[in-house]
Every structure is written in C-alpha cells, then in structure tokens.
C-alpha cells in the first residue's frame, strides 16, 4: 500500500524514470509519457512508427526501469497462435509421457508485438483475446497472465503489402494509439554521438518495483475528477458521433472510459491530485485517433484524424 506521505513523491518518481530513460532514449518524451500512461491504466497501446525509431529499445528500457519481464514477438504471416500463447508439448518423465504446457512469449509483463498487421487474423485474435482477458485458454485449460501485463503492438504505416490491417473493432481494444515521429536534428546528433562512441550505452536502473507499479495502478483509479471534466470528456466523444460533416463513424463509450482513465493517469504522472482540462485535451488525441473514421469529404481534403480531433476541441 502506498503510504500517504509518499503521494507527493509520485511526481518525483516519474521524473526520475524519465531521466533514467533519457540516458538510453533520446527525445521521444511524449511517447514515453503516453506509454507510461497506458501501463498505469492497465491498458495496451498501439504504436504507429516507421522503422528504426527505437521502439524496441524504448520498450525494453521501460521494462528494465520498471523491473518487469520483457518479451518481443516479431509478427510474420506464418506466425501461429500457438507461437504466441504457447502450446502443449509431450515430455517424457521416468518413462512416462505427459503433456506439459509450454508457455508462449505472451507470458510476460511487457510484450512488444512488432508489426502486428503482418500476423494473420487468427493470430491477431489470439493476441487480442489475451490482451482483453489477461488470460489464455489452451486445450480447455485457462492460464492467467502475470500482472501487470502490457502489450505494445506496432504498425508500420508504409509497406502495407502482404499485411492484414486490423479492423476498427480490434483497434478499438487498444487504449491508445501513439504516433512516433522522426527525431529533431539536434536529437539525431545526440543519438549518433551516443550509439557510435566507444562508450557502452548504460543500462537503465530499476526505479520502481513491480508491487509499487501495481499500487500506482490502483492509485490511478482513485484520482478524483470533477463533474465538469467528466462532461467534457463525454461531450467530446459524443461530438465524434454528431459531426457527420467530417466523421463517418464516431467513437464508442469505450473511448469515454479510456479518455477519463488516461486523463487520471496523466494527472498522477504530473503530480496533480485532480484531473484538469489540459489532461482531457492532451489525451484526446491518442485515445480517439484510432477510434474514428473520417468521411470521404474529409479524406479528400487531406484531413487526418488528428485534424478532426483538433476541430472537435475548438
């Protein structure tokens, strides 16, 4: 249980986590922040990024800082569900053969699923089921996944040939869709300096224990929110359904829940004991961008979902 006297130190803890991660990851502070928000909300995140932007390095570093187990799954078209969740194998023990369940890479705290859109729909469903239920069912047996459990799935926005794009019904299950952009010039200079020098890149130290993280996840839910902010969040989601001039299909109530939860998590990371308007507005983008479908007119104008969200926030 997190002691009351430690509540004011929560911001310090997250500041230290950011500082520790910055030793390995250059820039990308917004991305790191949003990943931490997803972890605190006990949700999963979809990362849209071009190749070579340190996605694996980032999530691996986060798992090290949070003292969590990390596994990586590279999706390919021939990836089977059993490759992800595990399967029964026959083992011989003292002359007797028995089935032993071999756990798949999904039995970890943090799982990076690279290029999830390359996996077959069957494999995607197995993964999504595990994400949703925090458990897997194999051969009539149910195996609970360890807590905390976080899946960071990535998608490559280019190179769409031979991919199985996830339908909106499935992307809706991801709490956030985080966009990763190229670094700035000065950041890229720093990256080059760090990774081409003779010095080894330092391994991040553990800043938060697993138990503390579980407590912080419970604490996130306790962050209070005013009625005005709740209304603001709900009205924003309702607008996605009413603005037929730009949006064909709006977000579901799952988006309202996600928006409030992520706003609470952000407030906790920022060291505030209440949700502010700024939290709602900031989290609106990663929460809604994968849950709305623009109409033809908006797409013809070259509008993106972020542009549509900006329009709704006015």
């Amino acid at each position: 249980m997190v002691e009351i006297r430690n509540l004011d130190r929560v911001k310090d803890v997250f500041d230290k986590i950011s500082d520790e991660l910055s030793q390995v990851i250059v820039g990308q502070q917004e991305v790191v922040g949003q990943v931490l928000v997803a972890i605190l909300c006990n949700g999963n995140a979809l990362l849209e990024s071009l190749p070579g932007l340190a996605k694996t390095t980032m999530i691996k570093s986060i798992s090290q800082v949070l003292d969590l187990q990390f596994q990586r799954i590279q999706s390919t078209p021939d990836l089977m569900p059993s490759d992800v969740i595990g399967t029964y194998l026959i083992e011989e023990d003292k002359g007797k053969k028995k089935f032993v369940f071999q756990k798949g890479p999904i039995f970890s705290n943090i799982v990076l699923v690279d290029e999830i859109n390359r996996a077959t729909p069957k494999t995607q469903s197995a993964l999504l089921e595990a994400m949703q239920e925090k458990q897997v069912s194999v051969g009539g047996n149910t195996f609970k996944l360890d807590e905390p459990f976080f899946v960071l799935a990535t998608q490559n926005p280019i190179d769409q040939e031979g991919t199985y794009p996830m339908p909106e019904a499935q992307t809706d299950r991801f709490l956030l869709k985080i966009l990763v952009d190229y670094p700035q010039a000065n950041e890229e200079l720093e990256i080059v300096e760090k990774f081409t020098s003779e010095k080894d890149v330092p391994t991040p130290k553990v800043m938060l224990s697993k138990n503390s993280l579980l407590m912080l996840q419970k604490l996130t839910r306790q962050i209070p929110i005013s009625n005005d902010m709740k209304k603001r969040a709900v009205e924003l989601v309702l607008k996605t359904r009413n603005r037929k001039d730009i949006i064909e299909y709006g977000a579901s109530p799952r988006a309202s829940i996600a928006l409030i939860m992520t706003a609470k998590a952000r407030a906790l990371i920022e060291g505030r004991k209440f949700v502010s308007k700024e939290d709602i507005d900031y989290m609106a983008f990663p929460v809604l961008r994968h849950r709305i479908i623009l109409n033809f007119e908006a797409e013809r104008k070259g509008m993106t979902t972020d542009d549509a969200i900006k329009e709704l926030l006015k």
């Binding site: 009351i4 209070p224 005013s226 009625n227 005005d228 902010m229 004991k273 209440f274 949700v275 502010s276």
Partner: peptide, 24 residues
C-alpha cells in the same frame, strides 16, 4: 478553480488521494 471544483464534486467520497486533495 479546477482543484476546488474537483474537491466540491467529490466531497462525499473518501480515498487516499481525496484526503490529500482536501488538505491541499
């Protein structure tokens, strides 16, 4: 403003964070 309205809307609830918020 935001702190006050949050406290006013949640004055009937009780948890660790709220206790700290009320003190603040």
């Amino acid at each position: 403003k935001e702190m006050l309205s949050t406290a006013a809307d949640n004055q009937d609830k009780e948890n660790i964070v709220l206790t700290e918020l009320f003190k603040e």
